[in-house]
Amino acid sequence: MKKPRLHRERNYGTIYALPIALWFTVFFLVPLLVIIVFSFLKADVDGGVMPLVSLDAYRNLLRPRIFRIFFNTIWVSVVSTLITILMALPCAYFMAKSKAKTFLLILVIIPFWTNFIIRVFAWKTILESNGVINSLLIGFGAIANPLPLEHNWIAVIIINVYTYLTYAILPLFSTIEKFDFTLLEAARDLGASKIQSIVRVLLPNVKAGIVTAIFFTFIPLLGSFVVQQLIGTKDMYMLGNEINDNIYKYFDWPTAYAIAVVLMLLANVGLLFVMKNDRKQAKAASARRVDDVDDGPRAPRQAISVAGGR
């Protein structure tokens, strides 16, 4: 069959796309290549590099301390992501079914308009030893001495969840919103319990949104460093802190670049894991013939797209 003819005689595509291609080449691709290449060079004294190929930077990573940091990074990111998604799912479901969608959306976005660091500061005010919670508890006579709410893993994870909850709700909302809720009723009519109908009908259908929510939460978390630095302790440092320290404290930039390369690999392993799972389940679900399921690689794109089409 003949493909429908493009409607333009002249092709302006290159002209339209040239600015973005130039911008991303100069300000994204080249910088990325710079750090990848420089991670294989020898460190100079002042944060620069010497034109000598060296694996020093990677050798610096083979230390027990870095292994612990690596382990911290993974488990904190995974746990924070899981909690975030589990909180975001019912929220998104409620929003999608609500009549006041725009209002609820704005409600979810408002905290986001306050800079991340100011929100971390607010949490510090809440959790500090003479902070809001402790002074309330002491005021009511519930405790005599302040509880150590700051500088522990729970505080770090709470703030992580706080930071990424909105990132997770938005893509989930836009996919659940497209979901045909009569399918749930059908499942209920056919004898499924409420939980069964949600797990076996709703969740497989909004897979793309879940994958995107995981992307938007897990990937930035892998590189986080501020919360551990300001609310945690040195024992809680993650790869992001190690990058920060290597740049601003030790002035060993190639090592920072090497950690960045490890982070990129880690992000992509996480990605492949999510997408592989996704595809496996998509196969299982293909009998049910639903859209959006086998969309692993395109998932984030799609959820952003859905948000844009609104």
Partner: peptide, 10 residues
Amino acid sequence: VLPEIIIGMS
């Protein structure tokens, strides 16, 4: 699909 710290440091 990249942690934002990488965009910043690059």
